[in-house]
């Protein structure tokens, strides 16, 4: 099983969208699409899910270009949660699973999917009474209940609590072990680093990097960083003389300090907190995939690309 996009392009009137982009995902891989809002993650996911057709290039699923045949192997969870009316979680999941599977196995598949996202206890309660996080878990269960060979999940951790994110990670690990393909569009750096075997960075609709998470993190370096919120009059040069301190970078109303040794933090705080009230806040940050993206593009994952014009899709 594999999925391949060859020079696919889908651009909207406002200039947003994706492409041309080429990407091949093999069996057992879990690939994360990362990039700021408007980078083209969802558009690429929709192209691979057959929810949109490329203006240029083409997508193949296991070497075949038939999107109708491909749908038998695809499970897709969009970034919005579909309304299920007054149906219970079990009824709604049964309906979706039943669109792919026509056998007596559906009830077992449904129970297993709901159990995997910790919704089995509330399976017979109406979805309308569920919280947003529970609906997100339900959407994931519905996308995976029919055991698709290719799962495409848009922002799967949005609204999930830490337990939910861990349950999802276990699901994706099990899928990878079974040789199934998973693509997720997500900027949740810790989840992606833990759950995905490959990361694809997209920026302004173009693929800027495709690598393993460990490789990307190694490029950034392993040192922690302390971000000090300080007043304008604060002199940052004193920090550079502290043993164990690497780069010191002034950034708007803050100073970012690279901590090469664990003991350096106390000395940095002592130097910054000199009793004149110039240190207003402190935040510690371990390097993650967002630093890798920033290093490559000079932009933050949280940034949103402004469209070229004000038009809609």
């Amino acid at each position: 099983m594999n999925v391949e996009a060859r020079a696919v392009q889908r651009r909207y009137r406002n200039g947003r969208g994706v492409g041309p982009v080429s990407l091949r995902v093999e069996a057992g891989e879990c690939v994360a699409l990362m990039g700021p809002n408007g980078a083209g993650k969802t558009t690429l996911l929709r192209l691979l899910a057959t929810a949109a057709t490329p203006q240029r290039g083409h997508v193949t699923w296991n070497g075949r270009a038939s999107s109708r045949a491909a749908r038998r192997d695809i499970g897709f969870a969009a970034d919005v949660v579909a309304e299920e009316g007054a149906l219970t979680a079990r009824q709604a999941t049964h309906f979706w699973c039943g669109q792919w599977v026509r056998s007596a196995a559906v009830p077992q598949l449904v129970s297993a999917a709901l159990d995997a996202v910790s919704l089995l206890d509330v399976a017979d309660e109406p979805v309308s009474a569920f919280s947003f996080g529970m609906r997100r878990r339900l959407a994931i269960a519905q996308a995976l209940a029919h055991r698709p060979r290719i799962a495409l999940l848009d922002e799967p951790t949005a609204g999930l609590d830490p337990d939910g994110a861990q349950a999802l990670q276990r699901l994706l690990d099990a899928r990878a072990a079974d040789g199934d393909i998973t693509l997720v569009a997500s900027n949740d750096c810790s989840f992606v680093a833990a759950a995905c075997s490959r990361v694809v960075f997209l920026d302004a609709g173009e693929l800027v990097r495709d690598a393993r998470p460990a490789e990307l993190l190694a490029e950034v370096g392993g040192a922690r960083r302390a971000r000090l919120d300080v007043s304008e009059s604060f002199d940052a040069t004193a920090l550079q003389r502290i043993p164990g301190v690497g780069d010191v970078v002034r950034d708007d109303g803050a100073v970012e300090v690279e901590l090469l040794h664990h003991g350096a933090l106390a000395a940095v705080v002592a130097a910054a907190d000199d009793g004149n009230g110039r240190l207003r806040g402190l935040r510690l940050h371990s390097p993650d995939l967002s630093d890798s993206f920033r290093m490559l593009t000079g932009r933050s994952l949280a940034a949103e690309r402004r469209p070229a014009s004000g038009g809609g899709r």
Binding site: A86, L87, H94, D124, P126
Partner: peptide
């Protein structure tokens, strides 16, 4: 009603209506 499992849009539409 909640024990009836929909497979087609026909059943789903009826269940959604009856459940309210």
């Amino acid at each position: 009603l909640r024990r009836v499992m929909p497979r087609a849009m026909f059943t789903r539409e009826i269940l959604v209506t009856l459940a309210r």
